[in-house]
Design a protein around this nucleic acid. Structure first.
Length: 669
RNA sequence: GCCUGGGUAGCUCAGCCGGUAGAGCAGCGCAUUCGUAAUGCGCAGGUCAGGGGUUCGAGUCCCCUCCCAGGCUCCA
């Protein structure tokens, strides 16, 4: 064994003698790095720490608390999961077990078609911890195809994967794996009882694992194909430290606490009656207030933004969607037709655009009328598969704040910029502030419109996006066949990204409907059409706001802004005058009579996330004051003059401020 | 749509090997009149999602339907 020299990421070199493994390199750099190391990257390829380094290799160490390091930990934990399941269910077949975002899974077929239960998760967890305590080494081996088929003779899923590699079904993968090993198959064994087909790398031994939790069991098709066997999948999460695991679990709890479906029931906002059907919500009075405020404010802004309001029906004859092309490309997403008037088929509308087009086309248009911005809160119905329906975010009946803009080609750049600033401004008013933009360009295959139209429109979108001074992510080839689009992505208070508004150019519909305007040259021209959704759907936007604010909506959107609690019965008349003052100032307020203790009533009001709870007693009657409890504070402010309180809250509402927020809720702006 | 797991009082849930339904909260009534996170007592509340079957007997076992949750492209 002679000394070798390897190069490190910082450009320096390191000489190794004797043990020339990647792990030894980490150790020679520092014991801290060695402890954190889980794998290495040698000349661009991820490898095990046990890999012997060649002279001149370029090496970096993969540490646990990095995306790549967590992948290794998760993938290794998935192996231990499979090993535990095979110990507990001899004869079980195991399929695939990759690392995924925040965790891992493994798919199994149990003997006799058995399936996992929640109790099993605890047993598997215990078996996994035994394997980890045994600190088994992960040992890599390489096999020829024939040899590998032999090793996995009782494992049909593994054999299928090996055969796929042999038959070159996995062409570029095999190439990336090794050019010269003649399609070698690698496997990792740990302990005497477990070997799994695997590309690696893995942590050196199972003792490096342990900060994991099995989360749920689910069914999943082999290779995601519903025609193939359904396997039993176990999901888990794994992290580099107990702290990181605890933080992840806390994030999950936080997301659950904010779940708009839960908040909707708790705050009495909306429900999904079985009698109506899946994905079809009803809004209760309190939810109705929020919705009306959202819509009213949106209308106000649209009116001052030069939009014109139109109203169109919910159903239409088949012909309209034939002209628009929706029936040809979108029929699966539409409710089936109803037959009326002796054989005419009528459809519930899944989109508003064709209707707005007919408004445009109702008479001859002049260039002087353009840009024409038509706006409608349009109720649309889409037949979503029952399995994908989710709360208010994926429904079968929804209300789009839909706008269609008709303009001349020359007007497109200015109009796009106008639209983008309009939507960003309104989203900010609702407290979302962390945006980025995504620009979807022409798809590879068939696309409507000429190359030049696409180039001009895409460039106009790019210029508009850049003028907004937000991060712009390109989605090359991600546009629809009928035109490029820009979408606004918003990050919420717990870091999730939601697609909000979209601005989409359409080269197809103006042509399909033969739209025209008469230009200054007295000639006929085709207008450009822009689709613009702002909230997207009012229902979904409400859900996003509820989760963003964890139910503690800004005061201006809260159904009940102030609740007044008289400490005892004879204070009630004063409490009523306080409410009258608040109502006169345009606020929504109520009294809760002294039928139960002040403590109990304050507790209830806090659960309901009322922004201001006023407690009034004898001293307040005497001095015309109130005791103010702000949402999120446990420190009441006594003897606040009523006049000042009314003035402050009215000003806050007028400014659409976030209002007092509970701890842990980001108020947005 | 398919798979897994669910559906018991308005809500959250308990209900064992099949023997005739239970708690907390909410609601209603009475008492309490209270100064900041839940006052006491009482009452009422159920087609155990719906339908069919097995059984002397079904919330419980079997089948169908509806509804809910999670998953079903992240390639060893």
């Amino acid at each position: 064994m002679s000394a070798i020299t390897v190069r490190l990421p910082d450009g320096s070199s390191k000489e190794l003698d004797g043990d020339v493994s990647a792990g030894a390199l980490a150790q020679s750099i520092g014991s801290g790095l060695a402890r954190a190391a889980v794998a290495a990257v040698v000349d661009g390829a991820e490898v095990d720490l046990s890999t012997e380094l060649a002279d001149g290799a370029e090496v970096s160490i993969v540490t646990a608390a990095t995306p790549a390091g967590r992948d290794v930990i998760r993938h290794s934990t998935a192996h231990v999961l499979a090993q535990a399941v095979l110990r507990l269910w001899p004869g079980a077949r195991y399929a695939i077990g990759p690392a995924i975002e925040d965790g891992f899974y493994y798919d199994f077929e149990l003997p006799g078609g058995a399936h996992f239960s929640d109790d099993d998760l605890a047993r598997i967890d215990a078996a996994m911890r035994e394997i980890i305590a045994e600190d088994q080494s992960f040992v890599r081996s390489e096999h020829s195809i024939e040899d590998a088929l032999d090793v996995f003779v009782d494992q049909p899923f593994k054999r299928e994967i090996i055969e796929a590699v042999r038959d070159g079904a996995d062409e570029h993968d095999a190439a990336a794996h090794s050019d010269d090993a003649d399609r070698a198959i690698s496997a990792y064994a740990n302990g005497a009882d477990f070997i799994d087909l695997c590309r690696g790398p893995h942590v050196p031994s199972t003792g490096r694992l342990g900060h994991f939790k099995l989360t749920r069991v689910a069914g999943a098709y082999w290779r995601g194909d519903e025609k193939r066997p359904q396997l039993q999948r176990i999901y888990g999460t794994a992290w580099e430290s107990a702290k990181a695991l605890a933080e992840h679990l806390h994030r999950l709890e936080e997301a659950e606490r904010r779940d708009h479906r839960k908040l909707g029931a708790e705050l009495d906002l909306f429900s999904f009656p079985d009698e109506i059907g899946s994905g079809l919500p009803v809004f209760h009075p309190r939810g109705g207030i929020i919705r009306r405020l959202m819509e009213d404010y949106s209308r106000e802004r649209h009116a001052s933004g030069g939009y014109e309001f139109v109203y169109t029906p919910h159903i239409t004859k088949r012909e309209l969607f034939e002209i628009s092309g929706h029936l040809q490309s979108f029929a699966d997403g539409m409710f089936p037709p109803m037959e009326l008037d002796g054989g005419h088929e009528y459809y519930l509308k899944p989109m508003n655009c064709p209707f707005h087009i007919l408004v445009y086309r109702s008479r001859q248009r002049s260039y002087r009328e353009l840009p024409m911005r038509l706006f409608e809160f349009g109720a649309v119905y889409r037949y979503e598969l029952s399995g994908v329906i989710h709360g208010l975010t994926r429904v079968r009946g929804l209300t789009m704040d839909d706008s269609h803009i008709f303009c001349t080609a020359d007007q497109v750049p200015d109009e796009l910029r106008f639209l983008l600033f309009f939507v960003l401004d309104l989203l900010r008013e609702f407290g979302l502030s962390d945006f980025h933009l995504e620009l979807s360009t022409r798809p590879e295959d068939k696309a409507f419109g000429t190359d030049e139209e696409w180039a001009v429109a895409t460039e106009a979108l790019r210029v508009a996006a850049q003028s907004a001074e937000l991060e712009l992510v390109m989605d090359e080839g991600g546009g629809a066949f009928y035109g490029p689009k820009i979408s606004v992505q918003a990050r919420d208070a717990i870091g999730r990204t939601h697609q909000m508004s979209t601005i989409q150019l359409d080269f197809q519909l103006p042509q399909r409907f033969g739209l025209e305007y008469v230009g200054a040259d007295n000639g006929r021209h085709r207008p450009v059409m822009i689709h613009r959704a702002l909230f997207g759907s009012v229902e979904r936007f409400m859900a996003i706001l509820l989760e963003h604010y964890a139910g503690a909506l800004p005061t201006w959107l809260m159904p009940e802004q102030v609740r007044v609690l008289p400490v005892k019965g004879d204070i009630e008349p004063y409490a009523k005058t306080v409410v009258a003052r608040l109502v006169a100032a345009g606020l929504r307020a109520s009294v809760e009579a002294a039928d139960s203790g002040v403590g109990a009533r304050v507790a209830r009001a806090k659960v309901q996330k009322i922004p201001y709870v006023l407690v009034v007693g004898d001293s307040d009657v005497a001095a015309t004051t109130v005791g103010v409890n702000r949402r999120g504070s446990n420190d009441p402010e006594r003897d606040v003059p009523l006049d000042r309180f009314v003035e402050d809250v009215a000003a806050e509402v007028a400014a659409r401020g976030a209002g007092p927020q509970p701890e842990g809720v980001e108020p947005g702006e």
